[in-house]
């Protein structure tokens, strides 16, 4: 009887169940980041990996295509992570963009930003094609995922990609962010990453705010604000050009 009451309450309040569940995942990820990786790998990246792993588990359990959301008491995850709230929250992050600060990054920041969107997109789209995803929608979505793990799903949803392709684009973006977090300190001296200007170039090129800020923090804490300054524009710029210009270019070529 008690289990019945619990599962009824969880199902009726599906969205609240999702908040509580994701909260637990976030809390666990923060603890893992702190004690297991000594803050090297950002908690948010761990949380997204756990999310993908849970989606895999949910998919094998139910045989459905919506990951955890196919489990009835966790159906609220589908609403919380659906297109509506996702776009809402992503747009909100632009509120912290200060136009005056953007001008500080200057031309070199802009060049890095454009290059940092085009290069990953090309590499991602080519990798997708090499693994048999040769249609324009899948190539664009996975290419966008290589820009950041946000640009991928936003682009995929906008142009109507398959959920498994969107999952690949998220995974590509998260993998990239983790590589940046871990790899940056080792490669910093080779790429001249010891001054604010290179940090801004670095932020614009690498994208992923979590990857850039964690990577720079492990290299030299003082460089973080400069890298984050350009990296913050990355997702917005990617969301603007990937489902539009880039998609049309890929469609024209394929």
């Amino acid at each position: 009887m008690i289990t019945q009451a619990i599962s009824h309450a969880l199902q009726v309040n599906a969205l609240l169940t999702a908040f509580a569940f994701v909260g637990l995942v976030m809390w666990l990820s923060a603890a893992l980041s702190k004690y297991l990786t000594m803050n090297r790998v950002h908690g948010s990246a761990i949380a997204i990996v756990i999310g993908l792993a849970l989606a895999f588990w949910g998919g094998t359990m139910t045989g459905g295509k919506s990951g955890l959301a196919d489990i009835s008491i966790l159906s609220g995850i589908g609403l919380m992570g659906g297109a509506m709230l996702r776009d809402f929250a992503i747009v909100a992050t632009a509120f912290e963009v200060d136009v005056e600060k953007a001008k500080k990054a200057g031309l070199i920041g802009a060049v890095a930003l454009v290059l940092g969107t085009i290069l990953p997109f090309i590499v991602g789209a080519l990798a997708a094609a090499a693994y048999g995803y040769t249609d324009a929608i899948s190539m664009t979505t996975i290419g966008a995922g290589a820009v950041t793990y946000i640009v991928g799903p936003v682009t995929g949803a906008a142009i109507g990609a398959d959920s498994s392709v969107i999952a690949l684009s998220i995974a590509t973006g998260v993998f990239k962010a983790v590589l940046v977090m871990i790899g940056t300190p080792f490669i910093a001296s080779m790429i001249g990453l010891n001054n604010p200007r290179t940090a801004m170039v670095f932020g614009g090129l690498m994208g992923t705010v979590s990857g850039v800020s964690a990577g720079l923090a492990a290299t030299d804490r003082r460089l973080v604000p400069y890298g984050a300054l350009t990296a913050t524009f990355h997702t917005g710029f990617g969301c603007l050009v990937a489902p539009s210009i880039f998609y049309f270019i890929v469609r024209a070529i394929v």
């Binding site: 999310g51 949910g58 998220i170």
Partner: peptide, 25 residues
């Protein structure tokens, strides 16, 4: 709230289908 929402979004995807693509990621 954006990272928690992204985590929920990741938990929604058809990862079983994606894993079949192997080492592409």
């Amino acid at each position: 709230f954006y990272i928690p929402i992204v985590v929920a979004m990741a938990a929604n995807q058809n990862v079983v289908g994606a894993v079949k693509s192997g080492p592409m990621v």
